[in-house]
Design a binder for these strands. Structure first.
Length: 266
RNA sequence: CCCCUAGUAGA
C-alpha cells in the first residue's frame, strides 16, 4: 500500500490528477494515507468538491485528514470555515497538532485577522503541549502580517531555540515595517549568535537593503553570499537587487542588470 | 524518501 500511495502523490506532484485517481481506484487495498493523499492532491489542484466528497466517504480519519481540510479552506482564505473544521475535529475527539495550528495561523496572517490570530495563540497555550520552533515562527509571522510588530517581537524574544527561519521572519517583518536599518542589524545579530544565513535569509536581507535604500550594503551582501557562502543565485536575489537599484533611482543600472543576469527575465 | 508541516523578491 505505501508504494501505491507514493505513486499517487507523485502523480499529483507532476499534475497528473486523473492518473492519480485511476491508481486510487485500482489499488487492491487502501489505508488512511491513501485517502489523505487523494484528498490533499485534489484540494491542491482545485478539485475541492472531489476532495470534500472523499473526506465524507473515507472510512476513518486521522489528524492529517482534518489538517488537509483546514488547509483547503485556508488556501481559499476562508478563515471562518477553517476554524469551524478545527472545532469540529475536536468535537470528534481528534486533537490538533502543531501543523493544525500552523495552518490556522497562516490563514489568520494572510487575511490580517488579528483577533482570530490571538485566539489561536491562546488555543495553543491552552493546549498545553510543548510548542516547537515552527509554531513560534508561525506566530511571529502571523503577528507581523496582522500589523502587530510589537507582539511579533514579544514572541521572538521569548523563543529559546531560534533558528535561521525564526530570525528571517523577524528580519522580514522589520523590513516590511520600513525598519530597514533594524533589519540589517538583526541579520548581523543572527550571525553573531552563530546562526548561518541561508538563501532565503539573503533574499530577505537584500529586500531590507532595498527598503533602506542601502545600495552598497546590498551589493556587498550579495557578493558575500556568492563568494563567501558559495550560494547560487535564485531569481529572487536578482529581483531584490534590481528593485534596490530602482528604489534609489539608478534606472540605467537596473536595466543593465536585467539584461545581464544569467537567467531569463520574467 | 506513503499523506498535512514555520521564514524569502517583484506587483
Amino acid at each position: 500500500v505505501p508504494s501505491w500511495n507514493a505513486m499517487i502523490s507523485t502523480y499529483f506532484q507532476v499534475g497528473q490528477v486523473e492518473e492519480a485517481f485511476k491508481l486510487f481506484d485500482e489499488m487492491p487495498q487502501r489505508n488512511v494515507v491513501s485517502w489523505n493523499a487523494m484528498i490533499s492532491g485534489f484540494a491542491e489542484h482545485g478539485y475541492l468538491l472531489e476532495a470534500f466528497s472523499l473526506f465524507q466517504q473515507m472510512p476513518e480519519r486521522n489528524k492529517v485528514s482534518w489538517n488537509i481540510i483546514i488547509k483547503a479552506y485556508a488556501g481559499l482564505n476562508k478563515l471562518n470555515e477553517a476554524v469551524q473544521i478545527f472545532e469540529q475535529m475536536q468535537q470528534e475527539n481528534v486533537g490538533p497538532n502543531a501543523i493544525t495550528f500552523i495552518t490556522l495561523l497562516d490563514v489568520c496572517g494572510n487575511t490580517a485577522a488579528l483577533s482570530s490570530g490571538i485566539w489561536v495563540h491562546r488555543c495553543i497555550l491552552d493546549c498545553g503541549f510543548e510548542v516547537d520552533v515552527h509554531v513560534w515562527t508561525a506566530l511571529i509571522s502571523m503577528y507581523a502580517k496582522c500589523g502587530c510588530l510589537d507582539n511579533a517581537h514579544l514572541v521572538f524574544d521569548k523563543i529559546l531555540c531560534k533558528n535561521v527561519a525564526t530570525w528571517t521572519t523577524m528580519i522580514s517583518s522589520c523590513a516590511q515595517y520600513s525598519l530597514g536599518e533594524k533589519a540589517l542589524q538583526m541579520f548581523k545579530d543572527m550571525h553573531l549568535k552563530g546562526i548561518m544565513p541561508d538563501k532565503v535569509s539573503f533574499v530577505t536581507l537584500l529586500s531590507a537593503c532595498s527598503y533602506a535604500s542601502l545600495v552598497d550594503e546590498g551589493f556587498n551582501y550579495y557578493l558575500t553570499m556568492s563568494e563567501a557562502y558559495n550560494f547560487a543565485s535564485v531569481p529572487e536575489h536578482y529581483t531584490s537587487l534590481i528593485d534596490l537599484l530602482g528604489h534609489v533611482g539608478w534606472l540605467d543600472e537596473a536595466e543593465k542588470m536585467i539584461l545581464h543576469i544569467p537567467l531569463q527575465p520574467n
